[in-house]
Simulated assay, not measured.
Amino acid sequence: MEVSRVQRKSTRLSITEPMLLLVAIFWGTSYGLTKEALLFTSVFLFIAIRFSLTFILMLPILINDFRQGLNRDWRVAVPTGVILSAIFFCEVLGVSQTTASNAAFLISLSVILTALLEVIINKRNVSILLYVLAIASITGVFMLTRNTKEQFSLNTGDYFILIAACLRAIMVTTTKRLVVNREIATTSLTALQSLIVALSSLVITGFYLPLEDIHIPNKVEFWFIIMYLVIFCTLFAFFAQNYAVRRTSPTRVSLLMGSEPLFGALFAVIWLQESLSFIQMLGGVIIVVCVITTSLKVKS
C-alpha cells in the first residue's frame, strides 16, 4: 500500500510540472500574438471575445460537473475570477503600450512576489533554496530581455505590467488558500473564472464604447490568433494552473511558469527571425537551470 502511494505521488509530480512548462511555452508566444490581435480590435473587446469563447467551449463540462454535484463550493470562483479579470486588463493594456522585453521582465517579478506573499498569506515557510532560485530566475529574465542598445525605463505600459505581476502573485496564492478542501472541479473553476472575465470585459466595453462602434473583427488572421489563445493560452493554461496549485506550492507553480520569457524569446527567434545576444542566451540558460532545479530538488 505504501509503495502504491509513493508511485501515485511520483506520477502526479511528473504530470504537474510538464503541464506548467507547457503553459510557460504557450504564454511565451502570447505577447507577440496579442499585439497582432490588437491591430484588429480594442483591448477590452479582445479580452471579452477571448474569454467568452473560452466559457462557451467549457459550458458542457461545467453543466456536467454541476449535475454530478462536484461544485458545492462554486462561489470560490468569484474572487479569483475578479482578480483574473484585473490581471488581464492590466496585462493586455500593458502589452499594447510597452515593448515585449520590458513586459517579460516586469511580469516575471510575480515569481519573487509569490514567494513573499506565500509567507504572509499562507503562513508557510519557504526554503532558502527556493528564494535563491526565484532571484536567479529573475536575474536570468533580466539578462534575457535586456536591450543593451536602449536605456531601461518605465512607461505607462510598464506600470500596467508591474501591477499585473503583483496581481498574478495574489492570484496564485489566493487560489491555493480558497480552493483547499473545497468541493469545486478544476474544470468548473476555470470555466467560471472565464465567465467573470468575459462579463467584466463586456461591461467595460459597453461603458466606454457606443453600441454602434462595437465591431467584431472579420479577418481570418484575428480568429486564428483568438482560437490559439483560447485553446492553448487560456483553456489549457488556466486548467493547468488551477490543477497544479492544488497539488504543489504556489511559489513552485509561479517559478515553473516564470520561464515563459525564455520561450517568448525562442518564439521571436524562430517565428519573427529576431536574434539573441550572448547575454540574452546566458539569461535563458539560467532560467532553464532554475526550472530544472526546482523540478528535481525543491520540495513543495
Score class of each variant (00 low, 15 high):
Tyr31Pro: 09
Leu21Ala: 11
Asp65Lys: 01
Thr114Lys: 02
Thr16Leu: 07
Ile63Glu: 01
Glu183Asn: 14
Ala240Cys: 09
Gln280Glu: 13
Thr148Tyr: 10
Pro18Asp: 06
Lys9Asn: 15
Trp223Phe: 02
Cys290Lys: 05
Leu20Gln: 07
Lys149Asp: 12
Thr175Arg: 07
Leu199Val: 15
Thr186Ile: 13
Lys297Leu: 15
Ile170Gln: 02
Leu84Gly: 08
Ala169Gln: 01
Asp65Ile: 05
Leu178Asn: 12
Arg72Met: 11
Ser101Glu: 05
Glu2Asp: 13
Leu229Ser: 02
Arg246Met: 07
Leu116Met: 14
Arg50His: 06
Ser194Leu: 04
Asn122Asp: 14
Asn155Pro: 07
Leu162Ser: 04
Ala165Leu: 05
Phe46Asn: 00
Cys290Ile: 08
Ala86Cys: 09
Gly258Cys: 05
Leu116Lys: 09
Thr187Ala: 14
Glu221Met: 01
Val230Glu: 00
Ala115Trp: 11
Ser277Phe: 08
Ile216Met: 00
Val6Cys: 15
Gln241Ile: 07
Lys297Thr: 11
Thr139Arg: 12
Cys166Leu: 13
Arg168Phe: 13
Phe88Lys: 00
Tyr159Asn: 11
Ser10Ala: 15
Phe222Val: 00
Tyr243Glu: 03
Asn242His: 11
Glu118Pro: 05
Leu154Lys: 11
Ile121Lys: 06
Ile279Val: 15
Tyr131Pro: 03
Thr16Trp: 01
Ser295Trp: 09
Phe55Tyr: 06
Val76His: 06
Asn64Thr: 13
Glu221Leu: 02
Ala86Lys: 02
Ala268Ser: 15
Leu202Ser: 11
Tyr31Cys: 03
Asn122Met: 14
Ile287Met: 05
Ala169Met: 03
Lys9His: 15
Gly28Val: 08
Gly28Ala: 10
Ala169Gly: 08
Val76Met: 09
Ile286Trp: 10
Trp27Cys: 07
Phe40Trp: 04
Tyr228Pro: 03
Asp158Thr: 02
Ile87Glu: 06
Leu229Asp: 01
Trp74Leu: 11
Met1Ser: 12
Ala185Asp: 08
Gln280Pro: 09
Ser249Val: 04
Glu150Met: 12
Asn147Leu: 07
Gln241Tyr: 03
Leu189Pro: 08
